[in-house]
C-alpha cells in the first residue's frame, strides 16, 4: 500500500522546464545574425605574376584573368617586344579625353575601342602578344583595371604595368 501511494504521487507531479531564458538567448542570437547579415558581393580577380623588379622603368608582370600564371614571362619579353599602351590622366585623375595612346602615336577615343584595336593588331598571335600599360601616376586605379579588362577581352593574356610615367 505504501509503495502504491508513492508511485501515485510521483506520476502526478509535473516537471516544468523554464523556457524563458532559452527563448531570450535564441532571440538575441537571431537579432545578432539579422543585424550582421550582409549579402555577399561577388568578387573576382586578375591573377598577376610579377617575378621581376622594374628594370628600366618597366615591371614585367603577366596577367591572366581569374587565375595565377606560374610561367616566367622574361623569355617572351626578350623575343617579342611588348606593345605599349599609354593612359593619360586629367587634373582630377580621370582618364583624359582621347587619353588612350595605342602604340607610339595613335590615340583612341576611349578604352572600349582598345579591345577591338588589339584584337585586330594581335590577330592569331594573342598567345605571344604582350601589352605594357604605361599610366599617369595620378590616374585612378579603376581605369587601369578597365584597361586590363579590355585587353583580356581581346584574348591577350600577357599584360605588363610599366612604372608610373609623369606627365600626360
Amino acid at each position: 500500500m505504501r509503495f502504491a501511494r508513492r508511485a501515485g504521487s510521483l506520476s502526478e507531479s509535473k516537471c516544468e522546464i523554464e523556457m524563458t531564458p532559452t527563448l531570450d538567448i535564441i532571440f538575441q542570437l537571431l537579432i545578432f545574425f539579422i543585424l550582421t547579415f550582409k549579402p555577399i558581393t561577388e568578387e573576382g580577380q586578375f591573377g598577376v605574376n610579377l617575378a621581376h623588379l622594374p628594370v628600366g622603368g618597366a615591371a614585367v608582370p603577366t596577367v591572366v584573368p581569374g587565375e595565377d600564371d606560374q610561367s616566367d614571362a622574361s623569355l617572351d619579353v626578350e623575343l617579342n617586344p611588348p606593345f605599349r599602351i599609354r593612359l593619360a590622366a586629367d587634373a582630377n585623375g580621370n582618364l583624359a579625353k582621347g587619353g588612350v595612346f595605342f602604340g607610339e602615336e595613335r590615340r583612341l577615343p576611349s578604352l572600349d575601342y582598345l579591345r577591338f584595336e588589339l584584337r585586330n593588331t594581335a590577330q592569331g598571335f594573342t598567345e605571344d602578344f604582350e601589352v605594357v600599360i604605361e599610366a599617369d601616376p595620378r590616374l585612378r586605379w579603376e581605369y587601369l583595371v578597365q584597361a586590363v579588362n579590355a585587353i583580356s577581352h581581346a584574348g591577350i593574356r600577357k599584360i605588363n604595368f610599366a612604372a608610373p610615367q609623369s606627365g600626360g
Partner: peptide
C-alpha cells in the same frame, strides 16, 4: 606592388567586381 616585390612576393591577384 614594388615594396612587395622587393620582399620577394611575386604572385598578385588584383581584385575587382
Amino acid at each position: 606592388i614594388k615594396v612587395c616585390q622587393e620582399m620577394g612576393f611575386t604572385k598578385f591577384a588584383l581584385r575587382a567586381t
